[in-house]
Amino acid sequence: MHELTLVALNQEPEEEIGWQERSLCAQTDPEAFFPEKGGSTREAKKVCVGCEVRAECLEYALANDERFGIWGGLSERERRKLKKRAV
């Protein structure tokens, strides 16, 4: 997992971490989920499509205002748009 994710994991109550342990991204290259600016998000999103905890991941990212990386299959820009539509 990426360093930012590890910091978040260390601050979560133990029962809240369960979904992250079951995530497919935890079993793959973390660099794909935190591409350089302008880099492709395609590979990360392919992993997210088949992930059983995609909804929990997206919910976490929205609730914690994650500003970097692919969470729940969405980029930061896509999450921002989703939040605006929800308001």
Rank of each mutant, 00 (worst) to 15 (best):
E3P: 03
L4R: 06
L4P: 01
L4M: 11
L4D: 08
L4Q: 07
T5D: 12
V7M: 09
A8I: 04
A8S: 10
L9T: 05
L9A: 07
N10P: 00
N10Q: 14
Q11W: 00
E12T: 06
P13I: 15
E15C: 06
I17Y: 02
I17E: 07
W19P: 01
W19R: 01
Q20W: 10
Q20S: 13
Q20H: 11
E21M: 12
R22K: 11
R22Y: 00
S23A: 15
S23F: 01
L24N: 05
L24Y: 05
L24P: 00
A26Q: 10
Q27T: 12
Q27I: 05
Q27H: 11
T28L: 08
P30Y: 11
E31T: 01
E31D: 09
A32P: 00
A32L: 15
A32E: 12
P35D: 12
P35S: 13
E36I: 14
K37W: 12
K37L: 15
S40T: 15
S40L: 11
S40R: 09
T41D: 10
R42K: 12
R42S: 12
E43I: 03
E43L: 05
E43P: 00
E43C: 00
E43T: 03
E43K: 02
A44R: 02
A44Y: 05
K45C: 02
K45P: 01
K45D: 01
K46W: 10
K46S: 09
K46V: 13
K46P: 01
K46G: 01
K46R: 15
V49Q: 14
V49Y: 15
V49K: 14
G50C: 02
G50M: 03
G50S: 04
G50V: 04
G50R: 03
G50L: 04
E52A: 14
E52N: 08
V53C: 06
R54W: 03
R54P: 00
R54K: 10
A55N: 10
A55V: 14
A55H: 08
A61T: 02
A63K: 15
N64M: 06
N64C: 02
N64Y: 08
D65Y: 06
D65I: 03
E66K: 08
R67E: 15
F68L: 09
G69L: 04
I70T: 15
I70L: 14
W71N: 02
G72Q: 07
G73E: 07
S75R: 01
S75V: 08
S75E: 05
R77K: 13
E78V: 11
E78T: 12
E78D: 13
E78H: 08
R79E: 12
R80K: 12
K81P: 00
